[in-house]
Nucleic acid binder design. Structure first.
Lengths: 212, 212, 212, 212
DNA sequence: AATGAATGAGACTTCATTCAT
DNA sequence: AATGAATGAAGTCTCATTCAT
């Protein structure tokens, strides 16, 4: 990448982050392009040198966030950890990303019905891929007898629902360090899966396997 | 309540539900007053005979939803159940309300930054009250040694985050009956609180039958 | 048509004529919707109660003009005149329509590249139909030996080119009554087609000398 | 003219022609400076090294076209032809210029209301001069008894209207060579002026039958 | 009770134009 | 000579809201 291109890319990333900030504070529609511009010390028109439409900014927020989550998964899956540790690590790092890119993830985890069809398709596909990979971890855990049998899909929804909701209340100024939050969530959510722990065997789980 | 008032109240509820439907499908801003009117077989102008502003409809959605949740809590708290059963029951019925009033709860659990300050204050207060009461159940459980000591606030966030996210994927046409989902969530989320590990033997499963 | 619908249709026709006026004076792009509204003592927003987009107004101008020309052709073709008289009558009435609906025809005969594809297709089809019907008159004249053999298509282009250009200079305030202009054009353009040469002597020419 | 000046002039002509091309295809307003630049393998910014304003380009199109027409008239008037032959020659060469500089003439013969007042004045003056000189040819013909008495002004409008409209449908890829079109138009339009009817027999018409 | 009509504020977007490099 | 970047003015369009009937 040439120097010029690099600078342009950097500037674009800035714009996306500025958009994420404003979007996360006021919502997509209440956020005006002018506000995003102001955030960057730009004028309204200037933004349009880098983007085509406001909607693009929303898409880029979603896309960047999903890309970060997926790449994170790549990394930790390369570690060779066992399913239980792996799932915990996935949760912890997922939470770490939420905290580290709070605006971005707040936008991305918020309502996606704001995305126009064309864009929604791309984003939903990535999100589905992410969910599928988490589900795979759970499945592998069950197969190896590390996790008790559970309806994987529902469990993943439960896990991600709990985890993602952190973006709604977390503040870096809060009393708890994010690592502690992350650790607590990981344990709280994964431990019930480990065989010798929580509900043994006969939960509705069995009958539900593969149902959701 | 006089016949007149009754009819008026009923009509108001209809309007709120129509608004909730459209809001939940398209989001507050993409939903036009005309669409809501159409849903009611009204014209845009006519709806203003019943409401003052579009924003009112959003507020009513939030308010009605929170009222339903709070009243539900009143009811089950009157049952005299022990904290663990009570918490599970709270979760189950909370999920039942989500499923039963999907549009309404989807709107109410979605982004609240769409509410103007005046209204937001009212709604947030109710939501805080709801969280506080759930937190109290947890606290009582800890005090009585039924639950292990945990950071109550975070646990409640975790619980509600997981539970509320159901509104994002649940569909009445899905394969799983909502009671099963509710039971699974309740067990999965409450069992980790019980002191020595999961409740022995008596998994909620049994006690859940036909509960929601 | 109900009273209401009638009124609405009338109002729409007014809007189209107002648009035609402004378009013909300043061109499509230099004409702002606000100016058109002002012409009608409307506000900008009000116009959008009747139309969807500015482009619609342009289309309606084209469409209305072509419809008038085509209906006029229907009428005079029903007269049973011979091709030479018929062609002259067609030219005369065509010119009459230009003068009678000067704004509208100025817009319609002006550049059609301003129309978006969807609309252009409709308009071009009507224009082609119009040309084809004029061409048919010429062809019938040739077949019956009333006209000498000529390349019909080119002749029609020549005729219509000459006739339509009237919209560029004609003014109702000019010295010449439109009937005289129309008669002169009809004779000047059709006589060359009649086999033995032009009608001798009796052209309107004399009385018009130095008039324009 | 120095080498430098020559090069500069050439470049300017290129730019005007590029502008004419884009203007003629999309109209003045729909043509963006960027497109014109692209046509020249320039960037938007660069073009402003050569021009001051977009409007200048439009003016230059008009001006260049009128200059070509006027210079053409100079040339053929120097030939000493009689009014009838002269008028035909004027029409033929006028048409030749339209075909030879199609883009340019399409722009120039199209709507002039796009020109700002300052420029419009210059252009309209040239156009008036052109019309006046054509009118003079007609007048001389009448005075010498070669043409029958006709309202000169209207005749010139008719002639030019017909001739100029060629720019709307002519394509170099069409079936007819431009010389034939030009000849046909010249005869068709001028013959009606000659007193006793058109020159008998020798009209180009015969040879062209069925051509278009 | 209901509605057609009208309005005005505001947002997105486009683009000619400028300018530092 | 050339260009990437930035700007500001303007215009289209949407829609919640009002109001006379």
């Amino acid at each position: 990448m040439s120097f010029r291109q690099e600078r342009a890319a950097e500037r674009k990333a800035n714009i996306i982050r500025a958009a994420a900030k404003v979007f996360s504070e006021k919502g997509y529609h209440e956020a005006t392009v002018e506000e995003i511009a102001r955030e960057l010390r730009f004028t309204k028109g200037s933004i349009y040198y880098y983007i085509n439409r406001k909607q693009d900014l929303l898409f880029e927020c979603h896309d960047l966030a999903m890309t970060m989550l997926l790449e994170n998964l790549d990394q930790i899956e390369a570690s060779g950890l066992a399913p239980d540790s792996l799932l915990k690590e996935a949760i912890r790092t997922h939470i770490g990303i939420i905290a580290g890119e709070l605006h971005l993830l707040t936008v991305a985890l918020g309502s996606d019905y704001l995305l126009e069809d064309e864009y929604a398709r791309v984003v939903i596909q990535k999100r589905d891929a992410y969910e599928a990979r988490i589900r795979d971890i759970v499945r592998r855990g069950i197969e190896r007898g590390i996790f008790r049998p559970v309806p994987e899909k529902m469990v993943v929804f439960l896990l991600l629902g709990a985890v993602n909701s952190i973006s709604r209340w977390y503040s870096p100024d809060g009393p708890l360090p994010i690592e502690e939050i992350a650790g607590f969530y990981a344990d709280y959510l994964v431990d019930p899966l480990t065989a010798g722990g929580p509900p043994q065997g006969e939960t509705a789980a069995g009958s539900q396997a593969g149902n959701v």
